[in-house]
Simulated scan of single mutants.
Amino acid sequence: MNVVKISYPTPLSKIIDIENDNMDIFIELEDGTNITVVVSTPLNLLQQMKNDNVNFISASQPDIIVRSLTHENIQQAIENYANGDAFWLKLLYVASIEKNVVDMSRINQFLKELNMLNNELLE
């Protein structure tokens, strides 16, 4: 799916350390969908773990990770996430707002089926 527009509520020029920060990004897709995502750098994730005094990133809406907060890097990542029908962009966005949009009973059923297939392979 084509990305029509990427907007920055905080201008990129205001980012002090483009290799250690995160920011919200607004995305408009060709089907009219508007999505908000967080784009982070690897150093910023490490900084968050240090600040929280943990050795992991807690489960939450996954950020889109880029090496540095430049328009080129962000655009490449967003376009990659929008490939096909923009499944990952749309899923991450709606699940971040309301996790019940994902049918856990269907996921659990599918996992059972996969488990049975794996067990058959091991026998």
Rank of each mutant, 00 (worst) to 15 (best):
A82S: 09
Q76E: 13
A77Q: 04
R106M: 10
N20M: 13
T41D: 13
N2S: 09
N34A: 04
I57L: 04
I57W: 02
N20F: 03
L92G: 03
Q47E: 12
D24M: 01
I107N: 12
E30T: 15
N115W: 00
N51Y: 15
Y93P: 00
K90H: 09
K50A: 14
L111M: 10
S13I: 05
L46P: 06
V3K: 05
I16F: 15
I25P: 10
E98I: 07
N80L: 11
E98D: 09
A77F: 14
N44E: 15
H71E: 15
V94N: 13
I18T: 14
N55K: 03
Q61K: 12
I64F: 09
S58Y: 14
L122V: 03
Q76M: 07
A82Y: 11
V3M: 10
A77D: 05
E98T: 01
T10M: 03
T10A: 14
I57Y: 02
K90V: 04
I57P: 02
D103P: 02
S96P: 12
K14F: 05
F56A: 03
K5T: 06
K14V: 04
Q75S: 13
L114F: 09
S58G: 08
F56M: 05
T10C: 08
S40P: 02
V102Q: 07
P42C: 03
I16A: 14
R67D: 05
D103G: 12
D85Q: 13
Q109N: 04
E72S: 07
N2C: 05
L121I: 14
T41R: 15
I74F: 00
K99I: 01
K112G: 15
Q47K: 04
Y93I: 00
P11T: 08
V4W: 03
I97L: 08
N115E: 14
I27N: 07
I97F: 11
A95S: 10
I107A: 10
L46G: 05
I78H: 12
Y93M: 01
V66D: 06
Q47C: 04
D52T: 09
L45E: 07
A82R: 06
V3P: 10
I25C: 02
P9K: 07
K90Y: 03
N53T: 03
V3E: 08
Q109I: 08
E120G: 13
T10P: 09
D24Y: 13
L89R: 01
S96E: 07
N20K: 12
Q48L: 11
N83T: 05
V66R: 10
L45I: 02
A82H: 12
T36V: 11
N108Y: 02
L69G: 02
V94D: 14
I35W: 05
K112Q: 09
I74E: 06
H71R: 12
V37C: 11
S7Y: 14
D103C: 06
I6N: 00
I57F: 06
I97S: 06
S96W: 08
T41P: 02
K14R: 06
N55T: 13
S58T: 15
N34C: 00
F87Y: 11
E123H: 02
V54F: 12
Q76C: 13
N22V: 00
Q109Y: 01
L12W: 01
Q109H: 10
